[in-house]
Design a protein around this nucleic acid. Structure first.
Lengths: 212, 212
DNA sequence: GTCTATAGTCGGATAGAC
DNA sequence: GTCTATCCGACTATAGAC
């Protein structure tokens, strides 16, 4: 049924915008490119959404909702299973990242752009709305999992982790390009396991103590 | 002497472009914004550089040359000191990242944008010219330092590392913003040490073996 | 809801005087 | 080398017919 349902103009626009925002960035993507990709009329964007900025919000919101819900569900399951005991860092990381890797590939790439590298005010608003609440939900469990780290260290390492993930999400075919075809890209599952292996070890590394 | 030397129009443009490209991105930065920031005439950009793309190349080239030279010098010193023995991964990482953190803060932020997230052909060319040669120079030492990893794993972890660094470089005041003022940002030296601590531990983590 | 047509703005780049 | 003035294309957004 869903497979046969006709795709509305609104959804065609959202799909095209997601694709182009993820691949080319927000500034570099024109509404003309989006409507051409979607096979719809230029004016329909301003009819269904009010502006390019509002379209961006809609594109993010469509994906962020389900992802964040599954993140929180996964965290709740871990909390119930371990009842007050600290959740191992690799399980926390999996709860946070698996919901992202399991959805459309474009989404993480797009989110990465928005969360970290586009500087406009719009992206700040998106961060506040869609990312911050989840981060706050995970923060206490993260602190309990990392008693050996000072808050600043834990925070910095969480940033490193987000960056490592971003790198993974942003790169489409990076491995083939850089290695000039000698290596094959990992599957999503392999990449996720490698990410967790790498970042969990980073989190477990001793505190640097004095200084920070 | 250098402090009193008058700043040429060309350099004023390069400085302004670096600032704005780093903060707002290439697409979002207009030549008009650059010339306004630099306090020079609009037409001077097309006089000194031929186009916006060529200006971008010039902005990157001015910084990438010295940085890469110091990276390779640091690597050579390690190679001479250790004579055929593998270089510890944390020393390799320091040789690679310290030259970047020691220059103007804007540069890494800008390079991060260009290396990973702006999709245009221009950025590919910049990568090929300024980044790939250094990566190739470091690659053998990296392999020797990581005998427990398969090539694909080592490569993937190097990507994670670049992402972690990118996150650090891209965020100006991220820690203050996200923690709502409860934490202070680390100094550059602290941040570098934390980055190396984190990523070196990630590299040392056991291979995941089968699968990848 | 979907189109055409266009307003109004801003972008990169250039011509030509000084 | 530096300016003013301008071309011309591309952009977002909207008005108004259907």
């Amino acid at each position: 049924m869903t497979a046969l349902a006709p795709i509305s103009t609104k959804d065609r626009i959202l799909d095209a915008a997601e694709l182009l925002f993820a691949n080319d960035g927000f500034e570099a993507t024109s509404l003309r490119a989006i409507t051409a990709e979607a096979g719809v009329n230029l004016a329909s964007v301003n009819y269904h959404f009010q502006s390019k900025d509002a379209l961006l919000h809609a594109v993010v919101a469509r994906r962020a909702g389900p992802i964040n819900q599954r993140r929180i569900e996964a965290l709740q399951q871990l909390e119930e299973k371990l009842r007050n005991e600290p959740i191992p860092i690799d399980e926390l990381l999996e709860a946070f990242f698996r919901p992202v890797t399991e959805c459309n590939v474009l989404v993480p790439r797009m989110m990465v752009r928005f969360h970290y590298l586009e500087a406009r005010e719009t992206f700040r608003a998106i961060y506040e709305t869609h990312f911050k609440p989840v981060a706050n939900r995970f923060a206490p469990a993260l602190r309990k999992a990392l008693p050996h780290l000072k808050p600043e260290e834990a925070f910095l390492r969480m940033q490193f982790t987000m960056g490592a993930f971003a790198q993974l999400a942003a790169g489409s075919g990076t491995m083939e390009v850089v290695s000039e075809g000698r290596m094959h890209a990992p599957t999503r599952e392999e990449a996720l396991r490698q990410l967790i292996q790498f970042t969990a070890a980073g989190f477990r590394a001793p505190s640097l103590g004095a200084g920070l």
